[in-house]
Amino acid sequence: MLGKERVMKIFNHEKPDRMPCFCVNGTPTYEQMEKVGAFWPEGHERAEDMAKLAIAAYTVLGFDAVRAPFCQTFEAEALGCKVKLGGKENIPGIDHPTLYKLDDIPVLPDDFLKRGRIPQLIEAVRIMKREVGDKVAVIGGIIGPFTIAGAMLDAVPILKASFKTPDKLRPFLDVAEKAGTMLGQALVDAGADMIAVEDMQASPDLIAPHTYRDLELEYQKKQVEALSVPVILHICGNVDKIIGFMHETGCAGISLEPKSDTKLARKIVGTNVALIGGVDAATTLFMKGPDDVKDASREQIEMGLDVLAPGCAIAPGTPTANLLAMVEVAKEYTYL
């Protein structure tokens, strides 16, 4: 069975030959860069390099899906935020000064999809589809409303406003949702089979669960409904307190860090949603060896996962051997 079929069967609620293995978040590592001859920062800004690095997840690691981009700054940059690329080794981030103050009126530029590095990302997905789209699933990555709004306003102001003046955040969440959805649909048009939404700042590590329920949920729901392909929702940290609300977004898959209770998640979302996750990207995949990776993978699968995956973006220094060990474990779990 091809990886693509394996992944699509999961989202069609059918049994594949075995458990799929891929990453909902960024996949590049320094070792993969050497192998495929594409590097950062070009991999963050040029379509050819981006596609090459994304495809390495299939050709080097044997994942069942490939995914671009590898940072969380595309929408924010196109909205006008200052981005620092990070050179050969680091992941791009949002730089100061912050774009907006709370009382400003945020603007979604008409030419949003032509701004910043977005045209390169769209082209990269087109290349990925052309090169490996018949063998593996192609995932386009966008950023969730609260996280984009956080980039526009900066962390402390948005956190304070989430309690003091939540209604002032609505125009920002509205623009952020539209920006993400517009990018997501463009990536689908370019060939993405699925969309992964990363919404780091919507984590209970940062905002209160009722803020997620009363403020963010409505925008995420809108986004999931607007996108014509299965959507995977990824929120960092322990999401036990919001897992039910994440389910309410209507997403097809939820990506979990092992900090969350996978068993609880399974109980709450039932069998309609694919649970994706398994191995802590930092403390296990990056810092430990293949045996620990295998143990951690098996332990999490037993708690009810549908897809084995790193719990977050793969740290670029992660050894290939650890990632291959994870794929090996996925192969043990057959359904035939």
């Binding site: 956190l159 304070k160 989430s162 940062l206 905002i207």
Partner: peptide, 11 residues
């Protein structure tokens, strides 16, 4: 309590 409440309380 969550982080926003801690920030607001210390303000």
């Amino acid at each position: 309590y969550f982080l926003p409440q801690v920030i607001l309380a210390s303000d």
